[in-house]
Simulated scan of single mutants.
Amino acid sequence: MNLSLFLFLIGILGFILNRKNIILMIIAIEIMLLAVTLLVLISSYSFDDNVGQTFSIYIISIAGAESVIGLSILVAYYRLRGTISLRT
């Protein structure tokens, strides 16, 4: 559980400290979602429950969809502005 908490804190710090770079923000959000998934898997293993494993598959699929949507928005932003920097 300490590993998932540590990963979640790294994700929060990465999101807060890298507010100018969209790609690093998306990576930080992915790290946070994977930390939550790891915590759900550890909890489901300790309680001997299969529902947590099924729920973790849903979390991973939602994280994948979120990254696809974020990267497509990034491509559209790049085509519009010519750069991915958030400085205006």
Score class of each variant (00 low, 15 high):
M1Y: 11
M1R: 15
N2M: 05
L3M: 10
L3G: 08
L3Q: 06
S4V: 09
L5E: 04
L5W: 01
F6N: 02
F6M: 06
L7G: 02
L7T: 08
L7R: 05
L7S: 14
F8I: 13
F8T: 10
L9S: 09
I10E: 05
I10R: 07
L13M: 11
L13C: 06
G14A: 01
L17K: 06
L17P: 00
L17S: 13
L17R: 11
N18W: 09
R19Q: 11
R19S: 12
K20E: 15
K20G: 02
K20M: 09
N21V: 03
N21Y: 02
I22M: 11
I23L: 14
I23K: 07
I23P: 03
L24I: 12
L24W: 04
L24G: 06
L24K: 14
L24Y: 09
M25P: 01
M25E: 04
M25S: 10
I26S: 00
I26Y: 03
I26W: 07
A28N: 05
I31E: 00
I31F: 05
M32A: 13
M32R: 08
L33P: 00
L34G: 00
L34R: 06
A35G: 05
V36Q: 03
V36K: 02
V36I: 13
T37Q: 09
T37D: 03
L38V: 15
L38K: 04
L39A: 14
L39F: 10
L41G: 11
L41P: 01
L41S: 07
I42T: 03
I42Y: 01
I42C: 05
I42W: 03
S43M: 14
S43L: 10
S44Q: 06
S44G: 04
Y45F: 15
Y45E: 12
Y45K: 14
S46W: 10
S46C: 10
S46D: 09
F47M: 11
F47T: 10
F47Q: 08
F47Y: 10
D48V: 12
D48N: 15
D48F: 13
D49Y: 02
D49I: 12
N50C: 06
N50K: 13
N50P: 12
V51L: 12
Q53W: 15
Q53I: 14
Q53S: 10
Q53A: 15
T54R: 12
T54S: 13
F55P: 02
F55A: 04
F55Q: 00
I57W: 02
I57Y: 10
Y58F: 13
I59L: 07
I60R: 03
I60V: 06
I60T: 09
S61P: 09
A63V: 11
A63D: 05
G64S: 07
G64A: 02
G64C: 13
G64R: 04
A65G: 08
A65Y: 04
E66H: 12
S67T: 15
V68Q: 02
I69N: 08
L71T: 12
L71A: 08
S72W: 14
I73D: 01
L74S: 05
L74N: 03
V75Q: 09
V75G: 04
A76E: 01
A76I: 14
Y77P: 02
Y78D: 03
Y78P: 00
Y78I: 14
Y78N: 07
R79N: 08
L80S: 08
L80R: 07
G82F: 02
G82H: 08
T83D: 00
T83G: 01
T83N: 04
I84Y: 06
I84Q: 03
I84A: 09
I84S: 01
R87C: 05
R87V: 14
T88W: 07
T88N: 11
T88Q: 11
